[in-house]
Design a protein around this nucleic acid. Structure first.
Length: 477
DNA sequence: TTTTGAGTTGTTCGA
DNA sequence: GTCGAACAACTCAAA
């Protein structure tokens, strides 16, 4: 019996229930479909580079049998079924609104033509339709969601091993060269970025082990300090399914003594579950304010401000360091993501969707659920959002969370010689100290593009205006 | 149904 | 320098 295993965001052979199911039935056709628009629209540039590298690794794990085809899933599957005589198709479930729609239609079409279809849970600890309140409605606050998951929902299953024997079939007639992912012209940039990472299942496991051995013991405190190696950096591996959340959960439970650091890290994994829960139950999350009274929010328009933010040229060192890290590596430390997010949305008063889109294109861990839920959280319009008056001060944040400047100096070499006392506010630095450090404001490093105090007050006023507008509305209603 | 307690990550001001 | 209060009420979750 021949079964097609359709890989998507599960680019691994261990703890892959769809692959295990296919293997148990006989011959397996491993297939990846590059869906229309995926190369140009759905996936950002950094993610696409990761995907290409990860597919190559998966192909190695499958003895070169991975079939990569560009096209609509229904027609690709129909063609591969014709070519191979496969009688079943299996996959691990996806949860993005468009993916759900595609998978639903594909399943219906296949079943209608007499093909067996089997899907599995592999990318989440708990299905979003299970992690709901007693009355069946979705959670909108993280803490009760988390408590309920830990106390009431089934303990995450143990990971399943890699199939002991894989009878792989090749369908070489349909294989597309990796160059068709459209990366050829971006080679130098991609090569530079990928120096920071090892995409693929083995790389993911190496990272997990390194984190457990070295970062986890100081995670609860250290995770706030971007100069430390105290975060896991597993996010891109998790996004592409090179490692599953239950593999991580299981490794934590079996290899780490119970302590606050472990609990805190697992909580972050549950935040991911919460984001998927929100996206599933509120499918407009990527584009619409979850709190609809934000719909009239007076966002500014400024392509200059946006460009300065994107390029790491705002004149605020901790912000610029973060944006440069993002550009160079496809990643940004979590603490810094909050700082740059707050700066865009509150100090620059630019729409959170602009930040969401830039992150989407730049991040190797770009993930629709996490990205949209997190940007809405930062902007204050999401579930369980930060109060709007919580506006990060980039000077204070830098001094507090990168006191020695190790992170900031790494990504802003032009400020490396500035003393700590002025690193986060070079505009207050005495001219002699500036010139000793080789800094010329407005030349080697920009002047601040906005002033902190007025921009903070402007943001608070905008929030106030929105509130007043809303109360007028409710009075009318 | 009503009530009650609680809610990721901050900053500023004034004592 | 340190500390508590104010910031803004509002919605959510569960008893």
């Amino acid at each position: 019996m021949t079964t097609i295993c359709w890989f998507r965001q599960d680019l691994r052979v261990t703890d892959n229930p769809a692959l295990a199911w296919a293997a148990s039935r006989g011959q397996v056709i491993p297939l990846y479909i590059l869906e229309p628009g995926e190369a140009s629209v759905t996936l950002g540039g950094a993610s696409l580079a990761w995907l290409e590298a990860s597919l190559a690794k998966l192909n190695d794990s499958l003895d070169g049998a991975l079939c990569v085809v560009e096209g609509h899933p229904e027609s690709v599957l129909a063609q591969v079924i014709r070519d191979t005589g496969a009688t079943a198709v299996t996959w691990n479930r996806r949860y993005e609104p468009l993916a759900i729609e595609t998978d639903k239609e594909t399943m219906a079409t296949l079943k209608a033509s007499g093909v067996e279809v089997q899907s599995f849970k592999a990318g989440l600890l708990w299905e979003p339709w299970v992690s709901v309140k007693k009355d069946g409605t979705p959670y909108r606050v993280f803490t009760p969601f988390c408590k309920n998951a830990l106390a009431q929902l089934p303990t995450p299953e143990a990971p399943i091993p890699r199939p002991s024997a894989l009878n792989l079939a090749r369908t070489e007639s349909t294989v597309v060269e990796a160059s068709s992912l459209g990366l050829a012209d971006r080679r130098p940039w991609v090569q530079r970025m990928l120096k920071y990472w090892v995409p693929g299942e083995a790389g993911a496991m190496t990272r997990l082990n390194a984190f457990i051995d070295q970062g986890l013991e100081d995670y609860k405190r250290g995770r706030d300090f971007p100069a430390l190696e105290a975060v896991s950096r597993l996010s891109p591996h998790i996004h592409f399914g090179e490692i599953s959340p239950r593999q991580i959960w299981h490794a934590m439970q079996t290899r780490v003594e119970g302590d606050a650091n472990k609990e805190h890290f697992l909580r972050e994994l549950i935040w991911r579950e919460f984001s998927y829960h929100l996206l599933y139950h509120f499918p407009t999350l990527p584009t619409e304010n979850l709190q609809t009274h934000f719909d009239g929010f007076p966002w500014m328009t400024s392509s200059e401000s946006l460009a300065a933010w994107q390029r790491g040229m705002t004149g605020y060192p901790i912000v610029d360091a973060g944006m440069r890290e993002l550009w160079a590596t496809g990643y940004m430390h979590n603490r810094v993501r909050m700082i740059v997010g707050s700066f865009l949305v509150k100090n620059l008063l630019l729409d959170w969707r602009l930040g969401e889109r830039w992150f989407w294109d730049c991040l190797v861990d770009a993930d629709q659920a996490n990205n949209s839920a997190s940007w809405q959280w930062v902007a204050g319009c999401g579930a369980d959002a930060a109060p709007y008056f919580r506006i990060f001060n980039p000077v204070t944040q830098g001094e507090k969370f990168d006191p020695q400047g190790g992170y900031t100096r790494r990504w802003l070499p032009e400020l490396a010689q500035l003393p700590d006392a002025y690193l986060y506010k070079p505009w207050e630095c005495p001219p002699i100290v500036l010139s000793d450090a080789g800094v010329v404001l407005g030349d080697t490093y920009p002047h601040p593009i906005v002033e902190l105090k007025p921009s903070r007050e402007r943001a608070l006023a905008a929030y106030q205006a929105m509130k007043d507008h809303r109360s007028v509305h409710s009075a009318e209603g």
